[in-house]
Design a protein around this nucleic acid. Structure first.
Lengths: 204, 204
DNA sequence: GTCTATATTAAGATAGAC
DNA sequence: GTCTATCTTAATATAGAC
């Protein structure tokens, strides 16, 4: 593996472990066993490092966010979609642990995050719209817009919330939480399926 | 006003404006027109400053969180409760903008936040329980527990979420979001009342 | 590409005079 | 209580040899 990629891997690990603000470039270099000068040759500081990791994050999620429009959409597909998203968010969790802080310092990241959030919300809205067409989802358009916002917020911050409560940030719990967010808006049978699915998934 | 209090006021302002990590003790001293040495005389660094502000925050919210148990609880009381909480959270928003970061660095704050979150959740649970007794709220105990978690998460992070989206963090929107979170769990008439109240409140 | 060594900067801490 | 002045430390940045 190229040094450049090893640096990204190692930074991601340390950032996730200790939080981006608590990791210095020197620490990354030491952890990898290379010199600070060498690190600087590849990345001029933490800003390009963070941006590089964000780019990876986006690339890995891109295929998910422009999904093939399923003809028939089951609640299970919903669950899988959420699961995959939550899993990627957890893998790059440092980005969302210090989101305000990071976007405040790095305007490029701020723009990137906003654009990405829009595509995420579009994908969610499309998902809900399909459920709505299939009569599995009640609620009017206004309510569904709010639901998309609420789901997005939960996806972004639920790991962080768990961490503050002293639990290990489990992507599993994030998905559970979002499924229960969805449930009250579903029709009777879909709701039962969703809740059962969520419970079973939570307890393995 | 005593210097000690002026320092707290000024720090709160700067922390909220720029985020706690981006404000140095020197900057606070300059803004106030006192010397860094003098600031250091009152607070030995940022840690005691943050803890001092958290203590204020708790004291200001304490009366709310041990509420007199209303005999008859209307949805309006719910709204008022949420409004007052959201307003205080916004006033001390720096604490929640960098929550992971801060609690990671300050174990005392971490313990304090966890205890406080427990009392907040108890107050919310009590509120929901009262609505339940009055038949305004359906959903079983399990679901209500999840709802308390979801409301807490939203109260904590919604301002932050708005900020990331590029809006001014409006406490008003937080309350709106929480009311719509509550709505699907309410009985027909209470739900209508809640939604109407939320909409009217949102658009002034 | 990678190293060693050094420069720059900024925050945090503290001593001693008033 | 408040100031001025200085010290320590740590992170980032960069030059120049290999």
């Amino acid at each position: 593996m190229k040094t450049r990629d090893r640096i990204l891997e190692c930074s991601l690990m340390l950032f996730n472990q200790k939080g981006e603000p608590n990791v210095s470039t020197l620490e990354i270099a030491n952890e990898m066993g290379i010199s600070p000068g060498n690190l600087y040759y590849h990345f001029h500081g933490k800003e390009p490092l963070v941006l590089g990791l964000f780019e990876r994050f986006q690339n890995e999620l891109a295929p998910l966010l422009s999904p093939p429009e399923d003809v028939q959409l089951e609640i299970e597909d919903c669950w899988l979609f959420l699961h995959l998203i939550a899993e990627r968010l957890a893998h790059y969790r440092f980005l969302f642990q210090d989101l305000s802080n990071l976007t405040g310092r790095l305007p490029k990241l701020e723009r990137g995050i906003r654009l990405w959030l829009n595509t995420l919300k579009q994908a969610l809205a499309q998902l809900l719209a399909q459920l709505h067409v299939q009569q599995q989802l009640r609620s009017d358009t206004q309510e569904l817009g709010q639901l998309v916002e609420q789901i997005t917020l939960t996806l972004l911050f639920s790991l962080d919330y768990q961490r503050v409560l002293g639990q290990h940030g489990e992507p599993r719990l994030v998905v559970y939480q979002v499924m229960l967010l969805l449930a009250p808006h579903l029709q009777e049978d879909a709701r039962c399926a969703a809740v059962l699915l969520a419970e079973r998934y939570l307890h393995d």
